[in-house]
Design a protein around this nucleic acid. Structure first.
Lengths: 248, 248
DNA sequence: AAGTGGTCTAGACCACTAT
DNA sequence: TAGTGGTCTAGACCACTTT
């Protein structure tokens, strides 16, 4: 077969699967395929658009990953109803806060403690194990927008404290630099009312409301190494998300 | 070629691409391919695992979608550093709250208003346009956990009010039932301190902190039809996420 | 020029579902 | 049993980066 890629999309820069996906997205948006309805089979689509089955399927897959479709083997591919399950509040806004180039980090406090029972459990060490406590303030254009208070294990065998202690970047401990010592982590957000000391550091009125984002990070041995929280007063962080069919 | 699917993975139930992905994930987890390093080329991988190039590529794609890899055309595929950009706080917990079968909805207030300038702008109608205001309380095992206060357009030409007015389900307006009238929406979360009236309805102490999730929904004509907010006192909603390499 | 990722073909077989 | 989605092959060409 010497004739390759000889479909009618060839002249366009956009890949064929993307064009097919866009066409199907249009049919969903205009009500041709309403929520709950069944799409034509992948084979029918490949015939209709004059592309190979794999290409048609790739279009279906990309729409499935957008949350627009769901497939049931042996039955068919269906247009999903709008729902919240598949969406999430993006952390990009937090990432932007931390990595913006108009931000500076100021270390407000740093000391060696013995881990409380609660903290020791979280870090998976014996109660009383040495930990380093750091309090950082993140300034955006000189104005405080984020307060980080965290503990890292003090462990001579694991030299990652150096990265964690990086005074310049809040991002060192995430491996944003070249270290890459952190394998995984979990984050949890809660609403929070600033305590007097927190409000003072953040130059906010007492009892200002804020996001509290608690974190726990693990190294490549799956051992916890850092625990703490970000405190971001409203409105310096807003969690947003879009659901449904926006790109028509 | 009569010999089909004759690779050494054939006897397993797990698809070949998934096995290859798992193997690569393991190499990343154990430090063979540390963050920032370059993966072998897709062709090399397909040789090594004795699968076709497309199958090897499918494995790479799935790891890319997990946020573990990033590809640069012409250059190579690299192991990503841990970062926050690609993650998000899942809305599944909110969805669970709303759709759980031990929850009931109680309508606390319902009336027809004229839209304030602010609301009219959000709903894209003239100031003073008729709107229906609804206040719903969501009870989990009889205990109030969520307060929804929202406005819907009062428009005889668009009969979707019926779905929105569904007293039984908070989910009607999301198309969770068969209606599917909503095409898209945007959500925004903020920390919030309950006002006296809100606290009373939710049976919370005054000034309790909560998540406020503001929403704006659009119909299939891309016209806004509903706007309002969910109020969920801590700790009935917790936004969580995991980042990095958890599945080893 | 050589290597790499991105796309694509024209089939094939399997697992599952509906009839 | 026929239809559907899920996987897979063994190549191919193109766009891009690196040397």
């Amino acid at each position: 077969m010497s004739e390759t890629n000889s479909n009618r999309f060839k002249e366009s820069l956009e890949p064929a699967y993307s064009q097919v996906a866009r066409a199907l997205r249009g049919f969903i948006a205009d009500g041709t395929y309403p929520p709950g309805s069944r799409l034509p089979s992948a084979l029918a689509i490949s015939d209709q658009f004059k592309v190979s089955p794999m290409t048609a399927r790739q279009a279906i897959i990309s729409l499935t990953e957008e949350g627009l479709l769901e497939s049931h083997q042996g039955s068919g591919t269906y247009v999903k109803h709008l729902g919240l399950r598949d969406s999430g509040f993006s952390l990009k806004s937090l990432d932007d806060l931390i990595t913006a180039d108009n931000t500076k980090v100021r270390i407000m406090d740093i000391k060696i403690n013995k881990a409380s029972p609660d903290l020791a459990e979280k870090l998976n060490v014996a109660s009383g194990h040495k930990v380093i406590q750091i309090v950082r303030l993140l300034l955006s254009d000189g104005f405080p927008v984020l307060l980080q208070s965290g503990h890292v294990l003090y462990d001579p065998c694991r030299p990652l404290v150096e990265a964690e202690l990086d005074a310049v970047s809040l991002y060192g401990f995430l491996g944003g630099d070249k270290t890459g010592l952190i394998k995984k982590g979990s984050l949890e957000a809660r609403p929070w009312m600033l305590l007097p000391k927190e409000a003072e550091l953040l130059e906010q009125d007492p009892k200002t409301i804020a996001f509290l984002i608690e974190y726990l990070f693990y190294d490549f041995s799956d051992l916890p190494i850092g625990h703490g929280a970000f405190l971001i007063p409203h409105p310096f962080l807003t969690l947003k998300t879009d659901i449904g069919l926006w790109n028509t």
